[in-house]
Write a protein that binds this DNA or RNA. Structure first.
Lengths: 347, 347
DNA sequence: CTGTTAGCGCCTTCAT
DNA sequence: ATGAAGGCGCTAACAG
C-alpha cells in the first residue's frame, strides 16, 4: 500500500554509478550510447540499472538536453470524429522519431486556446496547432514566439508558419460541379462556424459555381448533427406552409459544412418524408468513416486524414531538426459520389 | 524567418531579475506567490516579465519541484468512439487541477503498451491506464513500480491499484433479461477480444441467463463494425443453405460486444433481407452516440462516458494529493430499449 | 576510454 | 522582506 503524496525516493544515475562502481557520466554514456565504454563496465552498469530499477528522470533529461522529446497537439474538439485518425498518424510519426504526443483540447474556446498553446510551447519541442477560429493577429503573436509550430487545417499566407491543410475550396468546387452536372440550379449551404477558415474556404467555391449555373444560398447552421437537423426543421417551419416544399422555390440540393451536419439534415428530411435524392440531393463534407455504419451512403468529399496527420507530423519533425519549411501544403480532396445525390430539375 | 534547429536563447528567471533589479529568488516568489514581496518590486518584476516575454521552463520547474503538472492517459485506440468523451472529461478535471493531459495510444499492441506506460510514468505525475488486455502479471509489475496509477475500465482485485470501471456484467445481464422477457430462448453473442476483461465480464452474465431460460452461444468475432459484418456473413455462408435461416436452429437474437459490431451485423442482416427485429433481434453495447446519426435505433446499454472520465480523473488526483483510495468503483449501465429488439418465439 | 567539473533553469532553505 | 547558495538529475565539455 503506497502512501506518499508526491514521489518516492527515486534512484538516480549516481546511485547506479555507485552500485556499478563507475562514475555517473559513464552510466549516462552506456544508457545513451553517447560514447564507447568497455564491455565489462557497460555490463555492470546494465546490471545495476536492472537491479535498482533505475528510470531516467525525464525532467532532468529535458533540462540538460534542452529538449522534451515531446510534441504537442492542440485540437478544438476531441469528440469530432475527424481528429482521432489524424492524431493516430501524428502519434505514430512522433513515436518513430522518439517523441511522445501531448494532446490538448480547446473546447472550441478561443480564449483558452491561446493559453493552451503557450503552455504547450513550454513543455514541448514543437506544437501542432489546429485552431480554425483564432484571430489572425493572435496567431501572428504566437508565431512571433519563434517556437517550432505547424499550423494544421488552416493556412495563413504571409505568416512564416509552416502549414498544412486540405484543399477545402477544391473539395467544395468538386461538389458544386457534381451537382451542376446533375442539373441542379439552386442549392443552399448549411454553413459551419462563421469565423472558421475552413468554412470560408468552402464558401469561396460558390462564386465560381455561379458561373456554372449553380446558385448557392448560405444559411447559418453549425458543425453538428443536431445543427443540421435543426436547420432543416427551421426551414420547414418557415416554408412548409407555402406550397409543401421544404425549402425556397427551386432549391433542389443541400450542401453542408460537414458529414455530421448532413446526417442531421438527412434524418430530419427522412422524418418529413422528403425523398432523397428524388426531391432533394444532400452532400456532406469530410467523409468521416462513420458513414459505413450509418448506412446513409452520403455523397461527400473525403479528406485523407491519416495522410494529413502523417505529413503534419513530418513537417513538424523537419522543422525541429532541419529548420523552416517554407511552402504551405495542401492535400487534395476526393469526390465520393454515393446515394444522396441525384438528378436536378434541368436534365 | 526562424532558422534555429533546437531552441533559441531563452530568457531565464535570472534575466528577469537583472532587468528588474532584483534577485532571481524574488522573481520566483512573485511568480509563484510563494511569499510576500513589496508592491513596488513585484510590479517591476511583472513589467520585466512582460517586456522580456519570459516563460518559465517547464523542465526546470519539474526538476526542481519534482512534479510535472501532467497526467498521462493510455488508451488502446483513439479511433474508438468510446474514448473521446472520456478523454474530454479527464482533460477537464486535469485542467481544473492545474495539470495537462498527455495521451498515448497503444494501438492494441500489448508489447508496446508496457513500454508506453513506463514512459508515461517517467514524465507524468500520475497515469490513467486503460489496458484491457495486459496480462495480470505485467500489470502487477507495473503496480509495484509504486507510481501513482489508476486502472480504467478494468478491475483487478487484490492488486492495490485503484480502479474504476463500468459494470459490464450488470449491463449484459440487463440485456439478457430484456431478451428473455421478450420470449427469446436462444441467442448468439458476437464476442470481443478474447483476452479482454471487458469481454469476459460480459460473458460471465450468460451463466445466470441460462437460469432464466436464455441459452447463449459465444461466437468469436471482434470489436469493429467490419468484424460484426463478417461474422454474420460467415454464419450465413455456413447456414443459409439449411432452411433459409441465417443462424442455427432457434437462434432469434444476436448480442454483440459493442455497438460497432452491432452496426456491422445490422448492415449485413439488412443486406440479407432479414427483418430486424421481426426475425432477429440485435443488441449493442456501450451506446455510442453515433447512433443518433446512424438512425439504427439500436437497443443497447449505455455507459456514462463523461462520468467515467470525470471520476477517473478525480481518483487519480486524489491519489496524487491524498494517497491511496482503496475501493474500486463500478459505474452502472443503463438499458436503452430501442428498435432492434422485438418479441421472441415464446410469447 | 573514463572520471571530474560545470552547468541546464528553477525552487527553497538559510542567513541577512 | 530580500539575497545568496545549494541542489533537483542528467548531460557534455574537458582532462587525464
Amino acid at each position: 500500500m503506497q502512501n506518499r503524496p508526491a514521489r518516492s525516493a527515486r534512484v538516480t544515475i549516481t546511485d547506479v554509478g555507485a552500485a556499478a562502481g563507475v562514475s555517473p557520466a559513464t552510466v549516462s554514456r552506456v544508457l545513451n550510447g553517447t560514447a564507447r565504454v568497455e564491455e565489462s563496465l557497460a555490463l555492470r552498469v546494465q546490471q545495476a540499472v536492472a537491479e535498482l530499477g533505475y528510470r531516467p528522470n525525464a525532467a532532468a533529461q529535458g533540462l540538460a538536453r534542452g529538449q522534451w522529446e515531446t510534441i504537442g497537439v492542440l485540437v478544438p474538439d476531441l469528440a469530432n470524429p475527424y481528429f482521432p485518425d489524424v492524431l493516430k498518424a501524428v502519434s505514430a510519426v512522433a513515436r518513430s522519431n522518439g517523441r511522445r504526443m501531448l494532446v490538448m483540447e480547446s473546447d472550441e474556446d478561443p480564449t483558452v486556446e491561446h493559453e493552451l498553446v503557450e503552455d504547450l510551447m513550454r513543455c514541448c519541442d514543437g506544437v501542432l496547432l489546429c485552431s480554425p477560429r483564432m484571430p489572425r493577429a493572435e496567431l501572428a503573436e504566437l508565431a512571433a514566439r519563434d517556437h517550432p509550430m505547424v499550423l494544421f487545417n488552416r493556412v495563413e499566407p504571409g505568416l512564416s508558419v509552416p502549414s498544412i491543410s486540405v484543399d477545402f475550396h477544391g473539395g467544395m468546387t468538386a461538389i458544386c460541379g457534381h451537382l451542376a452536372q446533375l442539373g441542379h440550379r439552386r442549392a443552399i449551404y448549411l454553413a459551419g462556424p462563421e469565423a472558421s477558415w475552413a468554412n470560408s474556404e468552402r464558401i469561396r467555391a460558390f462564386s465560381s459555381a455561379r458561373a456554372f449555373g449553380l446558385e448557392v444560398t448560405v444559411v447559418p447552421c453549425g458543425a453538428t448533427s443536431q445543427a443540421g437537423y435543426d436547420a432543416v426543421a427551421l426551414a420547414e417551419g418557415s416554408r412548409l406552409g407555402d406550397r409543401g416544399a421544404v425549402f425556397d422555390d427551386g432549391v433542389t440540393a443541400v450542401m453542408t459544412y460537414n458529414d455530421l451536419v448532413a446526417f442531421g439534415a438527412l434524418m430530419r428530411l427522412r422524418e418529413l418524408g422528403v425523398d432523397v435524392p428524388g426531391e432533394i440531393s444532400v452532400t456532406g463534407f469530410d467523409d468521416i468513416s462513420l458513414d459505413r455504419v450509418a448506412h446513409s451512403n452520403l455523397t461527400t468529399v473525403s479528406v485523407p486524414r491519416d495522410e494529413l496527420g502523417r505529413q503534419a507530423g513530418e513537417m513538424l519533425e523537419q522543422l525541429l531538426t532541419k529548420g523552416y519549411d517554407a511552402e504551405p501544403r495542401y492535400l487534395p480532396m476526393e469526390l465520393r459520389v454515393r446515394d444522396t445525390t441525384g438528378r436536378g430539375p434541368v436534365p
